[in-house]
Amino acid sequence: MRSFTKSNLFWPVLGLVLLLLLNLTKTPDFFSIRVQDGHLYGSLIDILRNSAPTLLIALGMTLVIATRGIDLSVGAVAAISGAVACTYMAGSPDESTAGRAIVAMTMAVAVAVLLGVWNGFLVSVLGIQPIIATLVLMTAGRGLAMLITDGQITTVNNSLFSKVSTGFVLGLPIAILIALAVFAITAVLTRRTALGMLIEAVGINPEASRLAGVRARTITWIVYVFVAFCAGIAGLMIASNTNAADANAAGLFIELDAILAVVIGGTSLAGGRFSLTGTLIGAMFIQTLATTIPTMGIPAETNYLFKAVVVIVVCLLQSPKARAVLAVRRPTPLLTKGSAA
């Protein structure tokens, strides 16, 4: 237990647990999960399902931030992905067939990946600061999405497509399964290959990494492609939830929520060591917060106020300067446990 309190995950997990318990005081059956038609239902399941798009993007964002970067364009990429899929399906005669949906979704993700290649090119090859490089697509992206949908909210009627967010497999919502699958893939990709270590090395000391022969440019490029891939899938989930592509509203502010999830999860915006599990908890925390506020009888819109407080508290906890000023000193352990997955 003592080793756990020293872990970087201690505070995020504690915050999440407290939030969940807070719900219990107002809604006694908050933790109950019931089975209906072989599907699981309940508040916790809802939280998991609704957090899926944010979690997906936050996973990619974790890697980007670990390289000292940031990607502001993910919301726009998600919107474009949804627009591509819906427009393609709506424009074909066999709109509702499964094959059509699969082609549409593949196309959407491919477009998203291309956009990631673009961002990665600006950052790693041209050497433009990440925040500016991705601002370009953040601004133009929603325009592109509207161009694709011709400014309409494109609705589709395809059962396979709508299952992406509302369907169930093995009693669990598909959205959750997709998010967890991407989480698992990311974890494997970074911790079972050498990618995670190389990303951290580049984020901690780019010059030392270069001298050790690390291809920093390739690594940086890969993470921007990966976050765009995640954003593409998240965009499909968002579009599937409403069976429509809304170029303006889809994924609005999701980049901020994703960054927030990463920061809450203990990954520093200054790059370096990252924690995917922390990000998972961070994304849950944000969604739980959004659920808790109306439950407590506070207007849902004030969610922003609480997020502001969370951001400030988390940043102050992470800032060495602030910790020194506020004298919340935690001793640095001489040895740490193995890297957090």
Binding site: I70, I131, L256, I259, V263, L269, A270, P299, E301, T302, N303, Y304, L305, F306, K307, A308, V311, I312, C315, L316, S319, P320, K321, A322, V325
Partner: peptide, 23 residues
């Protein structure tokens, strides 16, 4: 004074101001 990136601090400011609007 706390040496926190302007990006994240003003992001918090953005949330704060938007939240106050709704209040």
């Amino acid at each position: 004074y706390f040496e926190i990136q302007p990006f994240i601090v003003t992001l918090a400011g953005m949330f704060l101001a938007r939240g106050l609007c709704y209040v």
